[in-house]
Computed example of a mutant assay.
Amino acid sequence: MLKFTPNDKEQPQKGDILLAEPFMEDPYFRRTVILLCEHNEEGSFGFVLNNYIDASLEDIMDDLSMFQSRISVGGPVKHNNLYYLHTLGDTLSDSIHVTEGIYMGGNFEELKELALAGKVTDDHVRFFVGYAGWSPDQLMSEVKSKSWFISSSDQRTLMDTTNETLWNSLIKKLGKEYSHLADLPPNPSLN
């Protein structure tokens, strides 16, 4: 049986992937894939994985020319801040474990030193301008209103900045009953 809406009974957890329902109107979240980095009684936040800006890290910070990866718009909150996910684990002090093989933040000076020494490449780090945030209970309210599919993914997929069809491929992975959603046009009235 074909399904058209997310399950409103699921409970998001830190490390989960949020997939926007296909007709979400909000321009920041239309067909987005978000890695949920924190979810607790104080609120939730994460990074949009599939929305990019047309700028280099060197355009944003002078001393990051060693990185050539694409920069994601992590969400509508705090666009003046640069955030990052990485696969370096405890190699960077003060890193926060998010999900299997994925860490957030950590000592930025250590990251730059490792990169200058050739020990960190674009495959190890991905950068975000801003983040997506929810006040206490806001995300659960959105889940109950069927705005988000809750899923999971692997380290390679989460760190990949080249996949232009990430939302579609992760919707298809939800199962046959949802795979038809990946083929729907973003605006059905233009079909």
Rank of each mutant, 00 (worst) to 15 (best):
Y131M: 13
H97C: 09
P185N: 08
L181K: 07
P188L: 10
E10T: 13
L82I: 08
L174R: 07
S153L: 13
L35N: 03
E164F: 02
Q13K: 15
I71D: 03
S152L: 03
A182I: 05
N51Y: 07
E142D: 06
G46R: 11
F108V: 10
G105V: 11
Q138G: 03
G105C: 01
E38V: 01
L35Q: 05
M104W: 12
F67Y: 04
P185S: 10
G43W: 02
F45K: 04
A20T: 01
E109D: 15
K14L: 03
F149E: 05
A20I: 01
V77P: 00
W148P: 07
E164R: 13
L158R: 11
N81C: 02
G43Y: 04
L92A: 01
N50Q: 02
N107W: 05
A132C: 14
L82D: 08
L166Q: 08
G130P: 09
V77L: 09
Y84G: 02
D54L: 08
L116T: 06
V143T: 12
M61D: 00
Y83P: 01
M61V: 12
P22M: 10
E109G: 00
H97A: 14
S151K: 12
V73T: 08
M140T: 06
F23H: 10
S145H: 11
H180S: 12
K146C: 06
R70V: 00
L184H: 05
S147G: 15
L88Y: 11
A132P: 07
S169I: 13
M61K: 13
L158F: 06
M24G: 01
S189N: 14
E113D: 14
L57P: 03
E21G: 01
N168R: 13
Y103C: 11
F128Q: 10
L158S: 10
V125E: 05
L166D: 05
N80G: 15
E177A: 14
L49S: 02
P27M: 04
M66A: 09
G46V: 04
Y83I: 00
D90H: 15
K119N: 14
S145G: 07
R70A: 12
E38A: 13
A182L: 01
